Simulated scan of single mutants.
Amino acid sequence: MSISPQIIHLLCLGGIAFVVTYLCVPLAKRIAFKFNAIDYPSARRVNKTPMPRMGGIAMFMGVMAALIFELVGEVVFDWHELYRSARFLQVNYVGVLAGLTVVCLVGAIDDVKSLKPRMKLLGQIVGACIIVASGVLLASIKNPFAPGFIEFGWFAYPLTVFYLVAFMNVINLVDGLDGLAAGITAIASFALFMIAIGKFRAETAMFAIVLLGATLAFLRYNFAPASIFMGDSGSLFLGAMLGVISLLGVIRSPTIVVLAASLIIAAIPIMDTFVAIVRRLKNHQPIQQADAKHLHHKLLREGFTPRKSVLIVYAWTAFLALGAYMISNTSGVKVFLVFLLLAVVSFAVLLKLGIFEPVLRHHYSKRSPRAVRRANEPLKGEGRGETAGESKKENR
């Protein structure tokens, strides 16, 4: 079976992102050491040497190199593909890249200076607003119950900004073990690429394959034992990219499958983030307050090593991605059955690990005292034991 020229073109763009990211990681390390964006060894960390945390710069450079190459090629070589979709979708891709740049820059400043939560959130909102103003807007979705579309009107603007900022923080909060956030993003990108190819959404496929190339290259340095952390410059950027990819898949589309698939694939960090927010509100703590009760902490308490914990989440994410792909290629009652299977299996695993303890306290009160102690005992063994974004201030 021959591969179409369009697929080859997209794979080349992914290759550019991979190579540039791979080559830029050493540069990102030097920048991190120069500006003291370092995670130093402490009682709450296991890294025995200072660890740079600005790996996001390398992924940003890889993604930007590939996308700028495509934009220049559109002008110089008249490739047409991207500009055709841009006119159809009414998207200004230069503006999208500018918004993504702002997001990465905010994360990089936070890696160095540890911004106050409000300032950090404001920066994320500014980046999201630029992306929205560039045409990446959830203005409508197909009505699943009747012909036509559901129009959001003016509410589409704050809704889309909230959606993008939420994706940024979901990936930021899940970045707690070596290779975890980058791996989840890589799996999600590959699945969204395959779905976009099947739906003939060239622009969505392009952003997905470029993100896949960058994250795979970064994993060479970030998978346990890591030699560099992505920091907020990476986690916020990856979250923004995933948000943009999912929105590009739904703009003026007769289906919402890419948007739905994105939410399904990201269900693990989304649920972990939701429960973390509930947990901290119930304990009268700030939402950004650090704790050791995230999903990866639960896996460590179950006795898994950091590497095995990450691989378990990888496998779980791949399971959800496969389900999302099946949903994108089925219809009718089969969609409901696949979704139900994904939901039941995921809920059962999360329930077993005790993730829902803040919202299902009555259920967990019936567990044995040993199980309760195990769910709340301090972390032992390896692993960073906290999200990079939550712990920087203690480590500086």
Rank of each mutant, 00 (worst) to 15 (best):
G55Q: 08
G55T: 02
G55L: 09
G55C: 03
G55N: 09
G56Q: 07
G56F: 01
G56C: 07
G56T: 03
G56K: 10
G56D: 09
I57M: 13
I57P: 00
I57W: 04
A58H: 00
F60W: 12
F60D: 02
F60M: 10
F60N: 03
M61F: 10
M61I: 05
M61A: 15
M61C: 14
M61R: 02
G62W: 04
G62L: 01
G62T: 04
V63I: 15
V63S: 05
M64G: 02
M64S: 15
A65C: 09
A65H: 02
A65I: 01
A66E: 08
A66L: 08
A66K: 01
L67C: 07
L67V: 08
I68Q: 01
I68G: 06
F69L: 13
F69A: 15
E70T: 00
E70R: 04
E70Y: 02
E70K: 02
L71M: 15
L71H: 09
V72C: 05
G73D: 10
G73S: 07
E74F: 08
V75L: 13
V75S: 10
V75H: 10
V75D: 07
V76T: 09
V76H: 09
V76D: 02
F77M: 05
F77A: 09
F77D: 04
D78K: 15
D78A: 14
D78Y: 14
W79I: 13
W79Y: 13
W79R: 14
H80C: 08
H80R: 10
H80K: 12
E81F: 15
E81I: 13
E81S: 14
L82A: 03
L82W: 09
L82C: 09
L82N: 09
L82R: 11
Y83E: 12
R84I: 11
R84C: 07
R84F: 13
R84W: 10
S85T: 13
A86Y: 04
A86V: 00
R87P: 03
R87S: 14
R87M: 15
F88R: 08
L89V: 02
L89M: 06
Q90H: 15
Q90R: 08
V91E: 00
N92S: 05
N92Y: 06
N92T: 04
N92Q: 02
Y93W: 13
